[in-house]
């Protein structure tokens, strides 16, 4: 019996439900006919070869790219399920900076490099009305502790941080407002293996502790094994296999998934 099966959340209404989502760039297919749902607190991994459409899908989901067809229904707080593609731009922007988090593959895209670490974390609370400097600062420092950044670095700018520290700061900056859903594109990409392991540990702890749902794009199977409850495998823009992470990894059906799993095991 796998541990994921034990952890399987009780059936609750989905937090995010995607149906028939497609996006192409001219004649180039980005992703095609994607449907899935994710429940509160659930972690979904998306794997697939380079160019299979993972980043495209994530960008569509997080409102940074307009899909060609399909719907994305999100269970908004106090409002119930809403197709986010029909939301106005301000509503979508507000959602993105309160109820969602986006952790970019390159921390430079997700941080203000000329603002101190404390200011980076404080931005979201201030954007939604926090006006007490002392509170904002102590909350920022709580989060620095959580992501294991020394408090003596609170007033330093992220450009003086290492890659792993920047990535952890980005995570803190996103999680401070306790979003219900976090999108991560290759959160451990470009990091040293030992740093990756620490970061994964940290992420797993935070996601479980706060009950955050997350969609994590990666091509690192170790990442999904550790973090994801469920797994989607993509190839050429389509989802070719999906299921509980351990099931998919231990008993892959699709030849591409088999190749993927075996190629990793060889390493």
């Amino acid at each position: 019996m796998t541990t994921s099966a034990l952890r399987k959340p009780a059936p609750r209404p989905p937090l995010l439900e995607v149906s028939g989502l497609s996006k192409s760039y001219g004649t180039q297919i980005g992703c095609r006919d994607i449907s899935f749902a994710i429940r509160p607190g659930e972690v979904l991994g998306i794997v697939g070869e380079s160019g299979s459409g993972k980043s495209t899908l994530l960008a569509c989901l997080s409102g940074r790219l307009q899909p060609d067809t399909g719907s994305i229904t999100y269970d908004m707080q106090g409002r119930g399920p809403v197709d986010i593609l029909t939301l106005s731009e301000p509503e979508r922007r507000r959602l993105a900076r309160t109820d969602w988090g986006i952790v970019h593959q390159n921390p430079r895209d997700g941080l203000r490099l000329d603002v101190s670490a404390g200011g980076n974390i404080g931005e979201r609370p201030m954007a939604i009305g926090a006006r007490h400097y002392g509170d904002i600062r102590s909350e920022a420092q709580d989060w620095l502790k959580k992501v294991e950044i020394d408090l003596s670095r609170t007033d330093d700018k992220p450009r003086t941080f290492s890659g792993g520290m920047q990535q952890r700061l980005q995570i803190a900056r996103n999680l401070v407002t306790r979003p219900r859903l976090v999108f991560m594109d290759e959160p451990t990409g470009g990091l040293d293996v030992s740093v990756q392991a620490r970061l994964l540990d940290l992420l797993r702890g935070l996601v479980r502790e706060l009950g955050i749902a997350a969609i994590i794009v990666t091509h690192d199977l170790a990442v999904v094994r550790l973090l994801a409850d469920r797994l989607m495998v993509m190839q050429r823009g389509r989802v070719i296999e999906e299921g509980l992470t351990d099931q998919v990894l231990d008993d892959p059906h699709h030849p591409y998934t088999q190749l993927l799993v075996s190629s990793v095991l060889q390493v």
């Binding site: 203000r112 404390g118 200011g119 931005e123 979201r124 400097y133």
Partner: peptide, 14 residues
């Protein structure tokens, strides 16, 4: 969306 402006005040105080 004036959060970023407030960040500049935060930076001053910090």
């Amino acid at each position: 969306e004036y959060g970023a402006m407030q960040v500049t005040l935060y930076e001053d105080v910090a």
